[in-house]
């Protein structure tokens, strides 16, 4: 079920990480992701683990909650581990049937597993501790420099925020239309693929019609409330850096420096 996916859901709690400026969290996440790719040894991963573990503990998000989010990617994880395990050439450790596991394979596969796990956990820490609004605000402000390259940053952020607001509404609507068509004898559970695809037409058309109607209504309502793009707009809750944000930046840079050093000297 869709609601089992905790990946990316906001987890309300009172923690320093929750209170950090979203730009810091975005930057921190980016640094963390990059660091995972510049590392080529286990010492680097140990350092990354320290960083991640500290972040998780400080964030007060229960580990079990984060783990539940991993359920969604478990297949991806197993798949990539298996591929790497069996497909890497090198010194054979075990072999059976047509497959063989190599020393290098074990090495690469475990690297891969750690990388994916850390990647997902690192980015979920960000989404778990940041409300979607805050996140869009952070993106808008944090990527503001892209405006000089004529990237419509404000518009993209506004679109994201509207999408986030309407996703639950459209999900509910999908459920309702599905039920209404089922009441007219529609069969959404047919085994045959062609039939199944065809059965989606009575669901998708009303859904599109409704989405367009909503979009139209919303555009009118936004205009009626004087919306005319990002120009001249003020913010109700402007983002302002605090002391703790500066400190967080320092820690992030220190971590990045540490990772680079590890790569150079080990």
């Amino acid at each position: 079920m869709l609601r089992d996916i905790t990946l990316g859901q906001y987890y309300p709690a009172e923690s320093v990480i929750h209170r950090l400026d979203p730009r810091v969290k975005l930057f921190g996440t980016l640094v963390f992701l990059v660091s995972l790719f510049i590392t080529d040894n286990f010492i680097g991963y140990a350092l990354a683990l320290c960083f991640l573990a500290t972040a998780i503990i400080v964030s007060k998000v229960p580990l079990s909650f984060i783990m539940r989010g991993l359920k969604a990617i478990i297949f991806l994880l197993i798949f990539s581990v298996l591929i790497n395990l069996f497909m890497t050439r090198g010194e054979v450790v075990v072999s059976f049937w047509k497959l063989s596991i190599t020393k290098e394979g074990i090495y690469v596969a475990s690297f891969m597993a750690i990388r994916i796990l850390f990647l997902i956990m690192g980015s979920s820490i960000m989404t778990l501790t940041t409300t979607p609004n805050n996140l869009t605000d952070g993106l808008e402000k944090g990527l503001g420099f892209l405006k000089i390259f004529r990237v419509p940053v404000h518009e993209i952020a506004m679109m994201m925020s509207i999408a986030l607001r309407f996703i639950p509404i459209l999900m509910e609507e999908t459920d309702k239309i599905m039920k209404a068509q089922m009441a007219r004898g529609a069969d959404f559970e047919s085994k045959k693929l062609t039939k199944r695809v065809k059965s989606l037409v009575p669901l998708l058309i009303p859904l599109f019609v409704s989405a367009f109607r909503r979009a139209n209504d919303l555009a009118t309502a936004m205009e009626a409330r004087c919306y005319r793009g990002g120009k001249g707009r003020t913010k109700m809750k402007p983002l302002k850096y605090k002391k703790r944000d500066a400190l967080a930046y320092l820690i992030i840079f220190a971590y990045l420096a540490g990772m680079i050093l590890v790569r150079r000297f080990f």
Binding site: K176, M182, R184, A186, D187, P202
Partner: peptide
């Protein structure tokens, strides 16, 4: 399916379920 043909349920704002190109085909669904 037999039950649903015997007990017809019209949902709230049922016009949101219309999808065919013309009225008659929609009712035929």
């Amino acid at each position: 399916k037999v039950l649903r043909s015997n007990v017809g349920l019209v949902f709230q704002y049922p016009e949101h379920q219309l999808f065919e190109t013309d009225v008659f085909s929609d009712v035929c669904f």
